[in-house]
């Protein structure tokens, strides 16, 4: 019965649950969400695709002609690519609602403006 008091108190208090899909929780600074590439800064060194532990990043082409393909369905948001990128071309955003039914929609392509 030692929980009775707390139980009675809780009965008249607001629940702590967040009504998630309707009420989104703000994420803190430095949250590791979906990474995005800034192709104006990218030099196409291919390091991000090489260090990626889950093979979520694919680089098509070489050097300054390259394109980046990012498969979010494989990404595990470790942010090693951000850490390895020598030029701040990759940033972690605060996007976290990335689940879906269609894998083909989880491919983000980054092309260079010519």
């Amino acid at each position: 019965m030692s929980l009775l008091k707390e139980a009675l108190q809780r009965l008249f208090r607001k629940p702590v649950t967040l009504k998630y899909p309707f009420e989104k929780r703000p994420v803190p600074e430095g949250f590791r969400g979906r990474p995005v590439w800034d192709m104006r800064k990218c030099i196409g060194c291919g390091l991000c695709s090489n260090v990626c532990p889950s093979g979520a990043i694919e680089m098509v082409g070489k050097g300054l002609q390259s394109e980046i393909k990012h498969y979010v369905d494989r990404c595990m948001f470790c942010s090693q690519c951000v850490e390895s990128c020598p030029r701040n071309a990759i940033k972690m955003t605060q996007e976290y609602e990335l689940a879906g039914f269609d894998r083909s929609k989880m491919l983000y392509e980054y092309k260079r403006e010519i």
């Binding site: 139980a7 009965l11 208090r13 702590v16 009504k19």
Partner: peptide, 13 residues
């Protein structure tokens, strides 16, 4: 609903 409230949840909503 009551059980949920006691457990700090919403219950059916």
């Amino acid at each position: 609903k009551v059980l949920a409230r006691i457990q700090s949840r919403y219950g059916p909503l």
